[in-house]
């Protein structure tokens, strides 16, 4: 019943962890069964993956970053980077005036292969 075509990657985002905690709370209160929570999480995997796609026009911003690569890892088709002294620039395309630039001492990037993401 799970969606093999969708990554579980985004469960690590804030919107994912908060959903997980909410489901966990409902299970603890014995209001739902764990099996239902698993189904909801796979619904989440599918929906967030689809929402991120450009055709939905929900996510349009562009981001650039520059820094010192401290660690790189490629395992099971997943890239992990730990970059230090990173300058991150975000251009919100929907509000062209707005752009954000922040410097972070350490940024961890976890990236899955784009070719597998729900594509046939």
């Amino acid at each position: 019943m799970s969606n093999p075509g969708y990554y579980e990657l985004y469960r690590g985002s804030t919107v994912g962890t908060t959903l997980f905690e909410s489901l966990d709370q409902l299970i603890t209160d014995e209001k739902i069964q764990p099996q239902l929570a698993v189904t909801i999480l796979s619904n989440f995997d599918r929906i967030i993956s689809d929402m991120m796609k450009p055709e939905n026009n929900l996510v349009k911003s562009k981001l650039t970053f520059k820094g010192d690569l401290s660690t790189y890892r490629f395992c099971d088709d997943v890239w992990t980077f730990i970059i230090k002294n990173v300058n991150v620039k975000l251009n919100d395309v929907s509000n062209s005036d707005l752009s954000d630039e922040v410097v972070v001492d350490k940024l961890k990037i976890v990236a899955c292969n784009s070719r597998k993401a729900g594509e046939p």
């Binding site: 919107v15 349009k60 911003s61 562009k62 970059i83 990173v86």
Partner: peptide, 14 residues
């Protein structure tokens, strides 16, 4: 803060 992006490019030196 949470940020979402459609595309990102990054350069880094190891």
């Amino acid at each position: 803060k949470d940020y979402v992006f459609q595309k990102a490019t990054g350069e880094s030196e190891w």
